[in-house]
């Protein structure tokens, strides 16, 4: 399964679709294809139905959080130092805006090959967290997309039942995000012990014996 050929096949068959090859430096070399949200369903349907591909089995669906980060790279700049032009190393910093990513691992049960890895990225991490749901292409994305919505907060448009999966309904945040801070008073409930502590504190304030 060469991702380059799949990429060119998809781009030839789906008008207006531009894919980007995301290379993977690890020894397993599982490269992936980054697709835009607009053509995602067309790409997914093509991969599922095309005769030579038949990616009928969507195995794994997951999210990744990439917060805004600074990338610093060293560049050489020519500068005048004491009247002499010399090359000086300078650190150039660029800010990469944050986004959330959904990753789909596809296999073919019919032709027994794979994986083909698809990625989609949201615009940002706040308001533009919408992605199209692929659960109507592969039913296995149903619960897994719900889990991503729950833990990462990606809103999958077109999902039939987008509710929290693992956290409880009244929970507000998305705990798998990198910047999530869990509250000190998780499930805080006043207990009889609190009343005792309060009275003890009052007692101390009044100058009572410790």
């Amino acid at each position: 399964m060469n991702p380059e050929t799949i990429k060119s096949e998809l781009e030839a068959n789906i008008p207006g679709c531009v894919l980007q090859l995301v290379t993977n430096a690890s020894p397993c070399a599982q490269h992936s294809l980054l697709m835009d949200a607009e053509h995602a369903i067309a790409v997914a349907t093509y991969l599922r139905d095309a005769a030579g591909l038949r990616m009928d089995f969507c195995s794994n669906v997951t999210g990744i959080d990439w917060p805004q980060r600074e990338v610093s790279e060293k560049i050489k700049v020519k500068k005048l130092v004491d009247g002499v032009e010399t090359e000086v190393d300078e650190v150039k910093k660029t800010v990469v805006p944050g986004y959330l990513e959904a990753v789909y691992h596809l296999y073919s049960m019919e032709l027994k090959h794979g994986p083909v890895i698809l990625r989609m990225r949201t615009q940002d991490r706040d308001a533009g967290v919408h992605l199209p749901s692929l659960m109507h292409v592969w039913r296995s994305a149903d619960l897994q997309e719900r889990e991503i919505f729950d833990l990462y907060g990606i809103i999958f448009d077109g999902h039939h039942d987008l509710r929290r999966l693992l956290m409880w309904e009244n929970f507000v945040d998305h705990p798998m995000r990198r910047d999530y801070v869990d509250p000190d008073d998780y499930e805080y409930e006043p207990t009889a012990h609190d009343e005792v502590l309060r009275r003890a504190q009052q007692h101390r304030a009044e100058g009572g014996r410790q």
Partner: peptide, 24 residues
Amino acid sequence: RPKPGEAYGRIESPKGELGFYLVS
């Protein structure tokens, strides 16, 4: 410390496909 990259490994566990997806 694995080098930056990602991998998806899967096995046939008694219950089905057990996969682990790691990004380093």
